[in-house]
Design a protein around this nucleic acid. Structure first.
Length: 554
RNA sequence: UGACCCAUGGUGUAACGGUAGCACUACAGAUUUUGGUUCUGUCUGUUAAGGUUCGAAUCCUUAUGGGUCAACCA
């Protein structure tokens, strides 16, 4: 209660409802259709629905909107449950719209008996022709005035499987001239002789969204049914059905879905990327799916923080993916174990180092005093990053250059004395001297350097594979460009570096570990790893002020 | 040429008739054994025009701009 944060419009409504005594507690639901994997946009809805009942008394159901058997699969149900749990939420009841098929059928019969629904034999083309347009009224179907008895008989026979797919529908009898297209005798039931992932072959008629969603809300006594803006026009039908059926009055509220730049969040488009092999699967680390983010190394905390920061409103929006990256960096900075990994090795020989090697201590995480340290082997021959040396350095280059000194992280200060090149002039090796009295933590050398480099001891180095990811698309809004959205895929969204060298402590990595490869970015072990062949995914890079400086200069 | 929803810095979101704030980004500086982190500071905004009011981002009108609606999808 100490928090001063202002309420979003849904919280305002809820607080009002609670204060007025309209409800003692609230009930929300997260209603995915099991026809694809959840993405970052869904995360927003999950955090909203579950977050509300975490903040206010009440609970949230997980309800699968499984009314279209031809696109829905158990695989999706399982992935959705896993993703919601991973995000850190618990549902009160696990429900399915298909649980209510019997009740929904009874509801349909009631509407027929009230003269509020009829069986239509029109084809979908005929129906479309009679529907009118947003500016012109529709016309009544010739089947609109069938008797209650006839409608009942036909509907029962529809259910009994006497008619082929597409031959008949059950429609609500509202008003073909209604200004709201959805009120022009919307279809309630259609015939689909299809196998359903839960009810099998029990049914051959399936309710449409509008005759399932609101009724399911009502059956579960959902108080606040929260959906996205495109359902605003459906609300009139939602309310009409509840009123005519005289069932529990759930209420629908709409908020604007979140769009994020440089990606797509449409299940249809994501499915295409998967089916047409533009990515390795739903959990490809470049995908904006929850499973993709998880494999990429995002933490549930950071995704929740992101959803919290972008808030909830009703206006169109395009959230900068940079905010998501900020959130994950913020969390990972606190928890990631620091390790040294050289991506593009350049050999360094410490010419005055005569020992056989030694083990130095290095902190696991400077942000975490309790994090402890690990041992890192130092020896005469090391790898440093090729980028960390320049023969002719520009101004303000704090890394290694002929005659210049740097500190090797957690080790010694070295000076570059000699550059060894091959016939083509490519730098092969650096000859350096080290200053024994500059040892990290016990530095009495009096030397001071501007740069600190990461490094690995060649004889102790563990070869690993690193997969570097960049945004999947090269434009902010691929769906807003001319032509196919796939034309705007970023060809450099994945770079595999098969031979990079890590300090030995990394060999013990497990899937749940989060690492910061010092000066390189945040990484996580990939599930493709084999014993002896570790693969790391780049979650996100570190902010890079030097790269920015270089860019400005050139 | 209809109905509905929406309009605050580059982005996202507050201000509920009374000082336009916060976060991200960008920029500048300090600190730093990660050019990371941390800290300090700076830039940028109420779509427009009328009206109501002592006072309008907020209320009213009109305009403009964006979005949604004519699937047996959800």
């Amino acid at each position: 209660m100490s928090e001063e944060r202002s309420l979003n419009f849904l919280e305002e409504i809820i607080e009002e409802d609670l204060k007025s005594g309209k409800y003692k507690f609230i009930v929300t639901r997260f209603p995915p259709e099991p026809n694809g994997y959840l993405h970052i946009g869904h995360a927003s809805s999950i955090c909203l629905n579950f977050g509300l009942t975490r903040k206010y008394p009440g609970f949230t159901n997980l309800r699968f909107d499984d009314t279209n058997p031809v696109t829905e699969e158990t695989e999706y149900v399982e992935s959705i449950k896993e993703d919601v749990k991973w995000l850190g939420f618990e549902w009160k009841h696990e429900r399915y719209a298909s649980d209510y098929f019997g009740t929904l059928y009874e509801y349909a019969l009631q509407l027929i008996d009230k003269g509020l629904a009829y069986v239509d034999d029109s084809s979908s083309e005929e129906m479309a022709a009679m529907k009118g347009t947003p500016t012109e009224p529709g016309v009544n179907s010739p089947y609109r005035d069938r008797t209650v008895e006839e409608n009942r008989d036909l509907f029962v026979r529809m259910k009994n499987g006497e008619f082929p797919d597409g031959s008949r529908t059950l429609r609500a009898k509202i008003d073909m001239a209604h200004i709201n297209m959805l009120m022009r005798d919307p279809i309630l039931y259609r015939i689909k002789h299809a196998h359903h992932h839960r009810t099998g072959d029990q049914w051959c008629i399936y309710p449409m969204y509008d005759f399932a969603h609101g009724q399911s809300d009502s059956i579960e006594e959902i108080t606040h049914s929260i959906c996205t803006l495109e359902f605003v026009p459906h609300r009139e039908l939602y309310d009409w059905l509840i009123e005519k059926l005289e069932i529990y009055p759930s209420h629908q509220y709409e908020f604007a879905r979140r769009n994020i730049n440089y990606t797509v969040t449409s299940k249809r488009k994501l499915l295409q990327l998967v089916n047409e092999k533009y990515v390795s699967g739903w959990d490809d680390p470049r995908m904006p799916t929850i499973s993709g983010l998880r494999r990429r190394g995002y933490t549930p905390e950071s995704v929740r923080e992101f959803c919290d920061r972008i808030g909830v409103a009703k206006r169109e929006n395009m959230v900068d993916v940079g905010l998501l990256e900020f959130c994950v960096r913020e969390h990972l900075n606190k928890i990631a174990l620091r390790r040294m990994v050289v991506f593009d090795p350049l050999r360094v020989v410490i010419t005055n180092y005569t020992g056989s090697g030694e083990w130095l201590q290095s902190e696991n995480n400077p942000e975490d005093p309790q994090g402890g340290s690990r041992s890192v082997p130092f020896s005469r021959e090391l790898y440093i990053e090729r980028d960390d040396f320049m023969e002719v350095p520009p101004k303000k280059y704090f890394r290694l250059a002929p005659g210049q000194m740097v500190r090797l992280k957690s080790a010694f200060i070295i000076r570059c004395d000699e550059v060894i090149k091959d016939e083509e002039g490519k730098v092969q090796e650096l000859r350096c001297t080290y200053f024994p009295e500059s040892k990290s933590g016990a530095d009495t050398s009096g030397l001071s350097v501007k740069g600190t480099l990461h490094w690995v001891s060649i004889q102790h180095a563990v070869p690993v594979e690193v997969r570097l990811y960049d945004r999947l698309f090269r434009v902010e809004d691929p769906t807003d460009e001319a032509g196919d959205f796939k034309d705007y895929l970023n060809p450099d969204s994945l770079k595999v570096l098969p031979g990079v060298y890590a300090e030995p402590a990394l060999a013990d990595a497990v899937l749940s570990d989060r690492f910061q490869f010092i000066r390189m970015g945040y990484f996580v072990l990939d599930r493709d790893s084999q014993p002896g062949k570790l693969i790391f995914n780049k979650t996100v890079g570190l902010k890079d002020a030097w790269a920015k400086e270089v860019k400005k200069g050139g």
